[in-house]
Design a protein around this nucleic acid. Structure first.
Lengths: 233, 233
DNA sequence: TCAAAAGTGTTCGATATACACCCATGC
DNA sequence: GCATGGGTGTATATCGAACACTTTTGA
């Protein structure tokens, strides 16, 4: 039997938070208006981790982003759709044959400025509750990523704050927890929980111009965070 | 630049527990007495999950084993050692070039009978505290697997019992926790913890022929386990 | 003055941790 | 009778869950 000889791609599931629900950054499939995960074949001498950085930068302008590999998708069926294969071959200019992909997870502030490259690749945020049908196994990759994001945040809670502006209110933070865990958190219990997190500190500053009582802003204190992390280990 | 076109292998980190510490199943590098992780190139039309099942079966006779993919290792440096490359080419009978591997984690009763295939591949258990220097990045794969095993067991505690005989004592179970978390658990607190696990049930049977008070045997009750799991979700 | 969101305290049950002694058995 | 490991209970701290009202602000 013949040994696998495969092209390798990267696909990135980049999450953003719009204050209400999680969104995913999708790009247009080159030459169409269909959406897909940002991803690309990688080069012969690349490591997948650095390839993921590169691919995300080229498609969206996002650099120095925390990226976490979460799974290899290798089913022969992932290129079962002949339209996907035709698109691959026209995009890369040669037959692609067997293709496996390494999926990465990333978190990003949703108002982060995307580059000109991002505009030309038709990048846009799409709520997780409404992701369209996508080529290959991209829908499956997105589904699996939703479980991974919780695990990532449990082992490294600092990651949460990659999704929030540098100053945020308690209700934004609570909304984020609710979006990730898909359940309500009681306000009073949530405030106590946050009070126990030494690395979430209240600022003197408050909201202005809101049609109700102004909320305090909070910030993430990385130094305090590293202290507590070292204490845990 | 040239797109990656790579051979793909599977490497399995199979853990066993000898009552004292975690062990890893290693095989002899074909044609040598050096040890390495059980693994192999995979075939063109295989999915990595089924390839992992196949490879493990061919090398050790272990079938129907829980296997969990945990990471792709793709650094170009992983084939930096020319001896590793020479071995690959002589084993597979053709040049291999770029090679990435998908690492799997598995848990196994250490006294499980290995097949004739296992003997011919020189399979043996090796304590994690004393794994030899291995080819490629196998030492790194083992290091990373040690963190993964805890995560796996936290999300799916039933996995623990794949490492124990079907009847086991509390001190065996405690020894296993201690090996995995690399810390002592107080006996009294540990007994209480186990008492809370509805899926670990005490049998009437006791040890015999021991030079001290005989311990009760316990067993894992999968039905009770599934009940508690469903309650959690 | 009303609508809308901010923010605060108590009680309960579950769990983790710390800690010391008597029990059963084979030798 | 002694060495060896088996097995039990109490006190404290932390944490998650349930639950309702007052405060601030702009419109």
């Amino acid at each position: 039997m013949e040994y696998m000889y495969a092209h390798v791609s990267i696909d990135c599931v980049v999450f953003g938070f719009d204050g209400r629900e999680l969104n995913i950054l999708l790009i247009e499939k080159e030459g169409t208006t269909d959406l897909k995960l940002p991803g690309s074949l990688i080069y012969q001498m690349e490591d997948t981790d650095s390839a993921a950085q590169r691919v995300l930068f080229e498609l969206t302008g996002i650099r120095r982003m925390s990226l976490k590999q979460f799974r290899c998708f290798s089913s022969p069926d992932r290129t079962a759709d002949v339209r996907d294969v035709a698109w691959l071959e026209s995009t890369y200019g040669h037959p692609v044959g067997r293709l496996i992909t390494i999926a990465y997870l990333s978190l990003c502030k949703i108002n982060r400025t995307l580059s000109a490259a991002a505009h030309s690749s038709g990048a846009r945020w799409c709520p997780v509750s409404g992701v369209p049908v996508m080529p290959f196994d991209h829908n499956r990759i997105v589904e699996e990523s939703l479980g991974e994001i919780r695990q990532w945040i449990e082992t490294e809670p600092a990651m949460l704050f990659e999704l929030l502006p540098s100053k945020f209110t308690l209700s934004e933070l609570r909304g984020l927890y609710q979006a990730i865990y898909r359940k309500r958190f009681d306000i009073r219990n949530f405030c106590k929980k946050v009070a126990r997190m030494a690395y979430v500190v209240r600022l003197d500053e408050k909201q202005t111009d809101v049609a109700h009582r102004a909320a305090h802003y909070y910030k993430f204190d990385r130094i305090a965070y590293n202290r507590t992390r070292r204490a845990v280990e």
